[in-house]
Design a protein around this nucleic acid. Structure first.
Length: 300
DNA sequence: GCGAGTCAAGGTAGG
DNA sequence: CCTACCTTGACTCGC
């Protein structure tokens, strides 16, 4: 089981998701920013390895405006050797990688231009992982999309759009249950029709489950089967409720008891867990250490 | 140097 | 048809 956190490390003062305003776009600025982001990505990954954190989500800002028409720079060839070097480090240390395009990536949108831009965005993400020479276990996670007034039609449109994707994208794509539109059962339905693996978000599931009252263990037994051998062990996103805030608000720092209870509920299945907790690597390090104690205690 | 406003992109809910 | 809200960090500008 690997433990990880998304995109940002708050303690080493190096950021792999620097960007800039579209208005101030220039090729020089792009090159300088990507150089910084790649250097920092490597620094962060080394720091993670030093702390036994072997799961990491690479920021979508790695290459700013990568799928925007303003950016015609051939970044994946220009930075080829650096990208490959980072990929080698990732493979040598057995690090699991994910990426998560943001809310604007909606392959089931009825609007042709939204759909088209989403595919370009997915292509960018797939290219990054490909340039690092990572295998199919490096995943790109998205939500199913909008409902557009008719959930069944929108699910059907997802299936159709998924099947039309380039295999180069499809082999890495996984869908994540969200906290307001598409719950785990919806995602399992879509898996039936497409074979797409389901990335289980435990916190989204607590917030929005469509009235599904089965235990987390029962649900996860179904979820894990959506991951084929070449997909690697299932990825799971974990968070907990920030006390005193609106339901669905991610915690500022880890709730260790809740974390261990969730791990237990996943029913001993080997998974890679990403902590979507605000203080990032701080909680991830704590999770790793508590988990070591917890697991060694369980064996006796 | 600091605080406030703003940022490529979409969607849902409520009126 | 319209507006408010979702949600996040950091860029950018005005003071």
């Amino acid at each position: 089981m690997r433990i990880g956190y998304p995109c940002i490390n708050r303690s080493i003062g190096c950021s792999a998701n620097r960007s800039f305003r579209l208005k101030s776009y220039s090729e020089e600025k792009l090159i300088e920013t990507v150089e910084n982001n790649l250097d920092c990505l490597e620094v962060i990954l080394r720091d993670n390895v030093d702390h036994s954190l072997l799961f990491f989500r690479i920021s979508s800002d790695l290459v700013p405006f990568a799928s925007h028409p303003v950016n015609t720079f051939p970044w994946h060839t220009h930075f080829q050797s650096k990208l490959r070097q980072i990929g080698t480090f990732i493979r040598e240390n057995d690090i699991r990688i994910s990426m998560h395009p943001d809310q604007f990536t909606l392959i089931n949108s009825p609007k042709q231009n939204v759909h088209q831009r989403s595919v370009s965005e997915l292509q960018y993400h797939a290219r990054v992982l490909e340039a690092m020479d990572l295998d199919d276990q490096a995943k790109i996670q998205i939500h199913v999309g909008g409902i557009y007034g008719d959930k069944n039609r929108s699910k059907k449109r997802f299936v159709k759009r998924y099947k039309a994707l380039d295999p180069f994208i499809r082999k890495r794509l996984v869908i994540e249950n969200d906290d307001r539109c598409y719950h785990v059962q919806d995602c399992l339905d879509l898996h039936q029709d497409t074979g797409v693996p389901l990335l289980f978000d435990t916190f989204h599931h607590v917030v929005f489950n469509g009235g599904n009252t089965s235990s987390m263990a029962g649900i996860f037994r179904k979820v894990r089967k959506t991951w084929a051998n070449n997909d690697g062990v299932p990825m799971v996103d974990y968070s907990s409720q920030q006390p005193g805030e609106k339901p669905g608000k991610h915690a500022q720092t880890i709730d260790v008891e809740n974390f261990l209870a969730t791990v237990e509920a996943l029913d001993d299945c080997d998974v890679d867990i990403m902590l979507e907790i605000k203080d990032k690597e701080k909680s991830a390090r704590k999770a790793f250490s508590k988990l070591q104690t917890f697991l060694s205690g369980q064996k006796f």
